[in-house]
């Protein structure tokens, strides 16, 4: 690695001030697991890294709001989220996704904010959180705004964050009686980046599916909601035919890209099949979520 300046501000405000609105070689680093890979590969050579790990500890807290929403500080490590009792009780889909996200060492170090700000479509958290209707809080110099998580992602490794803005929290609404599932589909070995990620949440009343959210990741350039598949599922009584149509709709509407995990045609097939399986898995929550 090539030498650079490292600063370790003690507060969020100080951290934001150390960022630069235009300079691309100055970046914030939370856990650094993703950024260090880019630095080692030589694709990112910083002049200054603004390390966030010594800012106020409140930014790492996971709390339940009065409204029953889960507020996850951006500096919470993925392990902290995985082991949080409220997450276990209220959002088992999130806990399960974390359990198979990368490996325990990465989860111990990587932070929620970093995992989202990286904009990598292969990551597991964005599709799960998006299907759960999460919102992100973003702070800049004297500014604070909140966005639906899906609106954070602008493209392949691209977000709408300004260079001097930081994600400070993620807020996940109550799941209530909504069903949920996330399937990470790997195509090469059991533990791998996904070829396709499929997350679904929906309500079920009298056997009829309501208000579905269907999100695909990894196969597309950014985490994407699939309105066509949702339309098929909305108001439908679930049977194989409906699930097939939903899978077909998903495969038709998603802009699937080829990569080392498979051709676009193959990944479309995976999306078609695993969308069906994800809905089935969400319906059958009594059985523990198993490997795909």
């Amino acid at each position: 690695m090539i030498p650079f300046e490292m600063v370790e501000p003690r507060s969020l405000e100080e951290a934001v001030a150390l960022l630069d609105p235009t300079e691309t070689t100055i970046r914030a680093v939370a856990g650094g697991t993703a950024l260090m890979l880019m630095m080692k590969a030589g694709v990112f050579q910083p002049t200054r890294l603004v390390c966030l790990h010594r800012i106020e500890p409140e930014h790492a807290r996971i709390t339940l709001t009065e409204a029953g929403e889960l507020r996850i500080g951006a500096m919470a490590s993925l392990s902290e989220v995985e082991k949080d009792s409220n997450v276990a009780a209220r959002l088992p889909v999130l806990k399960n996704a974390l359990r198979r996200l990368s490996n325990p060492r990465v989860r111990n170090v990587a932070r929620v904010g970093g995992a989202l700000a990286h904009g990598d479509p292969h990551m597991d958290l964005p599709p799960v959180l998006a299907a759960l209707g999460a919102r992100v809080t973003i702070n800049g110099p004297n500014t604070s705004r909140e966005l639906p998580l899906l609106e954070l992602f602008a493209g392949y490794y691209e977000t709408v964050l300004e260079k001097n803005e930081l994600i400070t929290a993620v807020t996940v609404p109550q799941l209530h009686d909504r069903k949920s599932a996330y399937i990470k589909v790997t195509s090469r070995s059991a533990d791998d980046w996904p070829a396709v990620g499929v997350a679904v949440t929906f309500s079920l009343h009298d056997g009829v599916l309501r208000d579905p959210i269907v999100v695909v990741s990894a196969a597309t350039e950014k985490v994407t909601r699939l309105a066509g598949a949702e339309q098929v599922l909305q108001g439908a009584a679930i049977d194989d035919a409906v699930l097939r149509r939903a899978g077909d709709a998903a495969a038709a509407e998603a802009s699937v890209l080829a990569d080392a995990h498979g051709s676009a045609a193959y990944k479309r097939e995976l999306l078609r099949v695993y969308l069906r399986r994800a809905v089935r898995q969400a319906l059958d929550e009594s059985t523990p979520q198993v490997r795909q």
């Binding site: 090469r188 070995s189 059991a190 533990d191 791998d192 980046w193 080392a260 490997r291």
Partner: peptide, 11 residues
């Protein structure tokens, strides 16, 4: 090793 996949414990 990220893109040349050797067997892991899950395989």
């Amino acid at each position: 090793l990220a893109d040349y996949k050797i067997p892991g414990i899950g395989d």
